[in-house]
Design a protein around this nucleic acid. Structure first.
Length: 501
RNA sequence: GGUUCCGUGGCCGAGUGGCUAGGCUGAGCUCUGCAAAAGCUCCUACAGCGGUUCGAAUCCGCUCGGAACCUCCA
């Protein structure tokens, strides 16, 4: 029996607004698509949160035994600065400003994005397609939509006819809108507009003579619209209907709404069964965003060089911090919250280190009450994660488990009181959820062998000083090391361990 | 203006009809040569006002406050 049968996953589907039991199209397989970054500048921590949320989701599905195909795209063309007709492509604009090739912009920020993902221990997707690698497919689907009468050409650009689509379908099904309301708000059309109605959106944009990103098409030189890339790449690699589509809450409208409309119009099928949206990272209650100027770059966080930070924090501290809230809630970013997270994370990491070195060898059947408690904790990890990927609840359980691990270490809890099967399950679960599911690993410091050997030597000297009752010397060794960031801890049995801040 | 969401103890944050997460901070205790770490204990909350119910932080209504989307943003 697979773990996913034992702990069936339920998730909040944005389409229904309700928590639903997850049933994949193909038993044992999960196909998920997540909107990746537009690589025209550095990713900030708000972006990181979204990719972290879906990292956890893909990790957990795999942990349960599913075969997961996780597709996350790179948007390297087609994302306009705004929806007005003079709207410029974000990549092209950046390239023009820096006087370099658009693909240089794309390369630079894609590399940056990948580096940030690695720093936060966010695993790469199974497929990472780019919009420029799928121009042909985007032209094909645009042609198909014209043939079906749901798109029209206008002065070298092609637009999706929202009103016509809405005759047979509901445009706004995901975000709870209707086109009458949409027609009432927003920017009005002017004479310059090529669109028939302001709610129509571009599938293909004509490239003006000075435009540097351009491809030939049946409608002349141009470039694809923003939304069509995701429809093309998701269906190409996951099928016309696939299991999960994720992304940030701010993409719900219009981006995901347009994807639904295009996909449904092109294939006649519902493109996605479950829509998942991760919520925003906020600063003082306001959304972290580049345009508001309140975004934090990962480098500013590590170095503590942002004005709102007292000092730097490690990537794992931030990862833990973000996992303390549910992905569908907003999360407020602050110095105080990070400080608290750092201590909490250290506690869990320490227990992780301890449990790895605890072995149960006896065959004692153990005390029923203790065994029961450990079994309950072990199961709770799965139950909480299967309940809409509730990392906050899971972490609460891991803290309980860490307490029991410390008890095992100190002797408050005798291993002989435990059933070996229960213990091994407990151990495997703690390590598995920490590392494989939540991706929380020890902060990678400069623990090189040279330093380790040096500290061990000092520890030996301190042990000698203590047995000689030379406390002034033993205290000096401890205190001086503490000053440079190395904390010596005395064990009950005279053993000493150390941690580096 | 329209659509949606949120308001939880000193702070951060889960939960969402009865079983009162968790972390951080603070106070006390145990262990320890002294520390640190660890363990135990304490401070026990759901914006306000009504209503439904045997019972509501959780459901409903109103009021106040905040946010997101309706231009671009994960």
């Amino acid at each position: 029996m697979e773990q996913f049968e034992k702990y069936p996953v339920s998730l909040t589907n944005s389409l229904s607004g309700k928590k639903e039991l997850f049933t994949p199209i193909n038993s044992g397989f999960v196909g998920m698509y997540v909107c990746g970054p537009t690589v025209y500048s550095h990713v900030h921590l708000g972006n990181v949160r979204t990719f972290l949320s879906f990292d956890i989701i893909s990790r957990y599905f795999r942990f349960l035994g599913y075969k997961v195909r996780y597709v996350r795209n790179i948007t390297d063309v087609g994302h306009l600065e705004n929806d007005a007709d003079e709207g410029e492509d974000k990549i092209a604009k950046k390239a023009r400003l820096e006087k370099i090739e658009p693909m240089e912009v794309v390369k630079q920020y894609t590399e940056d994005f990948h580096q940030v993902m690695r720093q936060f221990n966010i695993l790469p997707p199974s497929i990472e397609p780019s919009a420029t690698g799928h121009i042909l497919e985007q032209i094909e689907i645009t042609k198909e939509l014209i043939n079906k009468g749901l798109a029209y050409e206008s002065n070298g650009s092609v637009y999706f006819n929202v009103r016509k689509y809405n005759n047979d379908h509901h445009y706004g099904i995901l975000s709870g809108r209707n086109i009458e309301e949409l027609m009432e708000s927003g920017r009005e059309l002017d004479n310059q507009d090529e669109k028939r109605e302001k709610i129509d959106f571009a599938l293909w944009k004509k490239a003006s003579p000075h435009h540097i990103m351009r491809w030939p098409s049946p409608w002349g030189d141009g470039f694809p619209g923003w939304h069509i890339e995701c429809t093309v790449m998701s269906t190409k690699y996951l099928g016309e209907t696939f299991d999960i589509h994720g992304g940030g809450m701010d993409l719900k409208f219009p981006h995901h709404e347009c994807e639904i409309a295009q996909g449904t119009a092109a294939t006649g099928k519902t493109p996605v069964n479950y829509w998942l949206h991760s919520n925003m990272l906020t600063v003082n209650g306001q959304k972290m965003s580049k345009s508001l100027g309140n975004s934090f770059l990962p480098s500013e966080l590590f170095e503590g060089s942002h004005s709102l930070l007292d000092r730097g924090y490690g990537a794992m501290t931030v990862r833990f911090f973000m996992l303390q809230s549910h992905y569908s809630s907003t999360l407020d970013f602050s110095n105080e919250a990070l400080q608290a997270a750092e201590k909490g994370f250290k506690k869990l990491a320490n227990a992780l280190n301890l449990i790895k070195n605890i072995e149960h060898t006896t065959n004692n059947t153990g005390k029923e009450i203790t065994n029961k408690e450990l079994t309950t904790l072990t199961r709770a990890c799965y139950q909480n994660m299967s309940d809409d990927f509730n990392t906050a609840k899971t972490l609460a359980v891991l803290f309980e488990m860490a307490g029991r691990i410390n008890d095992m270490k100190s002797g408050n809890l005798q291993l002989t009181a435990l059933d070996p099967v229960v213990f091994n399950d407990f151990k495997k679960t703690y390590i598995g959820f920490m590392e494989s599911v939540l991706g929380l690993e020890e902060e990678k410091g400069q623990h090189d062998e040279l330093l380790d050997g040096t500290v061990r030597l000092l520890i030996e000297l301190r042990k000698k000083a203590r047995t000689d009752k030379n406390f002034s010397l033993s205290d000096k060794i401890r205190d001086d090391l503490k000053k440079i960031g190395i904390q010596i801890k005395d064990g009950k049995d005279g053993e000493m361990t150390y941690t580096i801040d």
